[in-house]
Amino acid sequence: MTPPARTLEPRRDLWLLGALGLVVLVLLAVLIVDRTGDTENTASAPTPEMGPVGDLSRRLDGDPLALGAVDAPVVMIAYSDYRCPFCAKFSRDTEPVLVDKYVDEGILRIEWRDLPIFGEQSMAAARAGRAAAEQGRFWEFGTAVYAASPERGHPDLSPEALRGFAEAAGVPDLDRFARDATGASADQAIYADVLEANAIGVSSTPSFVVNGTPILGAQPVTVFEQVIDAAAGSAP
């Protein structure tokens, strides 16, 4: 006599449980292999140690407000104001040394951040810097401004003066520069820089963060070299 159909259900349930158990084991094995692979990949690609401030680099390819290779092992964030006499001193005395020794060798990337703290002319100059960047002459513009800055006090950066610096920097379309420099299209990006500075407690210029290590003020070039060398030494 053929047994009732219900007597086969326990055997069928046992078979299903066994099949499901096998699937679970296979999935666990796959996960273990994947995690092992991820661990191996992480171990083979160490990242540089970061200082207490952490990694603030943006590493945007083609960023006109950055100097150096996008994949440089060391990134220095520079919070600056065009009316700051100590920023001018850094631009004239220290930055060329760092560019020659580290940026040109692919070790260092410098990323500019606007921190306009000396009144409305500082904000106008920040807009002008962004206007020069739109035509590929950002760093040349900053160099021109700082080269003419006084040793003490704050320069008078009137619209006429800013246009003159743009001309000296080789900005090709000065009328476009004037329009961009007096518009508000760059304000959001400038305010983002200010908020970033405020978030880490930076309220004076120039201030720097080198792979998470802060440097305050226009320190001697040897101070920058020591911090950059230490950061480069921790890089893969």
Rank of each mutant, 00 (worst) to 15 (best):
T2Y: 11
P3I: 09
P4Q: 00
A5Q: 09
E9M: 13
R11N: 14
R12V: 15
R12F: 12
D13H: 13
L14M: 13
L14P: 08
L16M: 12
L17E: 15
A19Y: 02
V23C: 14
V30L: 07
V30E: 05
V30C: 10
V33E: 13
R35M: 10
T36R: 13
G37F: 00
T39P: 07
E40K: 12
N41R: 12
T42K: 07
A43W: 01
A43Q: 10
S44G: 10
S44W: 13
P46D: 04
T47D: 10
T47C: 10
T47L: 15
P48E: 07
E49I: 08
M50T: 15
G51S: 07
P52C: 07
V53M: 11
V53Q: 05
L56G: 06
S57W: 12
R58D: 07
G62I: 00
D63A: 08
D63Y: 02
L65M: 14
L67P: 09
G68A: 05
D71G: 14
A72W: 01
V74N: 08
M76V: 12
Y82K: 06
C84Q: 05
K89E: 15
K89A: 15
F90K: 02
F90N: 09
S91W: 08
S91Y: 09
S91L: 00
E95K: 15
L98Y: 06
V99K: 07
D100P: 13
K101V: 08
G106P: 15
D114G: 09
D114M: 06
E120T: 14
E120L: 10
S122K: 04
S122D: 12
A125H: 06
A126Q: 11
A126C: 13
R127H: 11
A128V: 10
A128D: 00
G129N: 02
A133T: 12
E134V: 10
F138I: 04
F138H: 01
F138Q: 04
W139F: 14
G142E: 05
A144L: 00
V145P: 02
A148R: 03
A148Y: 01
P150E: 11
R152Y: 11
R152D: 03
G153W: 01
H154G: 09
L157Q: 03
E160I: 06
E160K: 12
G164P: 07
F165M: 09
F165D: 03
A166E: 11
G170S: 02
D173H: 07
D173T: 08
L174C: 08
F177D: 03
A178M: 07
D180C: 06
A181P: 07
A184M: 11
S185E: 14
A186E: 05
A186Y: 06
A186V: 06
D187W: 02
D187S: 11
A192Q: 14
E196N: 13
E196L: 10
N198F: 14
I200L: 11
G201H: 00
S204C: 12
T205L: 11
V210E: 02
T213W: 00
P214N: 03
I215Q: 03
G217W: 02
A218M: 01
A218F: 00
F224T: 04
A230N: 04
A230T: 13
A230M: 03
A232D: 07
G233A: 12
S234L: 13
P236C: 13
